[in-house]
Write a protein that binds this DNA or RNA. Structure first.
Lengths: 124, 124
DNA sequence: GATCTATATGAATGTATAATTATATAGTTA
DNA sequence: TAACTATATAATTATACATTCATATAGATC
């Protein structure tokens, strides 16, 4: 059970993780610290864009940074993110299997009462 | 390690969870299935808004629904979300403790080289 | 079938956010 | 100090998204 203020904080965290670019950055950092330039190169993004995503990740406490000469090294500050991703991946896989079996289904408007009664929770 | 296509899927999941209203809805459903009307009342939101959030949660496979007469009962379809929230909460608490100790810190621009060398990862 | 209740959906609007371009800043080296 | 490298930031634009209001739909009851 979560406080009302805490909900906003948790939501913000999820929101920060809800961007493919940022997940890719985190994935890259999983192997070890990297400079902005390295990330830009490997991700084939623009430097300002990557820099902003890194700032957002930093503000969220997900990555840390350290200057070394001219470069700045970013690194994973909270390995929790990988556990999160693993959980989501597992659940996604389960869901994919379910969808395969049950096939696509649009919503309750189409549904007859009998169909509703016979279907299982989470049924699409 | 995650596929490139999978990253988009995972990001979408996080994005769906990155909305306070939706987290509140999920929290309500944790105690058991509820109708849209019940959720609207307890959340003090508008009916169309809650309905849309429910649709998004449903499309993401996080909740299921079943019609019962005139009402539609929504329920948790994937309890994984609560594990996710728990992980985030724990990590947030740790981070809060750290921030307390280190105090506010704006970014690397202000930082001298010495400050950078002495600080720890994730240091704000 | 008309009306009522519960829920979903479409259109309009405001707001947040990602991407891009141009520029500023910090540190290094000559 | 000037030029150079690496990174951050400001301004702009485009797009996605949440919210609201009005309305449509499905089922129940009369």
């Amino acid at each position: 059970m979560i406080h009302d203020r805490m909900i906003e904080v948790v939501a913000r965290r999820f929101q920060v993780l809800g961007e493919p670019c940022r997940l890719r950055i985190l994935q890259q950092l999983q192997r070890g610290p990297k400079t902005v330039g390295q990330i830009v190169t490997e991700l084939a993004g623009t430097q300002p864009n990557v820099s902003k995503h890194l700032q957002i990740l930093f503000d969220a406490g997900l990555v840390g940074r350290e200057r070394e000469g001219n470069s700045i090294f970013y690194s994973i500050a909270d390995p929790m993110v990988f556990k999160l991703c693993e959980l989501v991946c597992r659940s996604t896989a389960r869901r994919a299997a379910r969808v395969q079996r049950i096939a696509s289904f649009r919503g309750p408007r189409i549904r007859t009462r009998r169909a509703a009664a016979s279907s299982i929770r989470g049924g699409n």
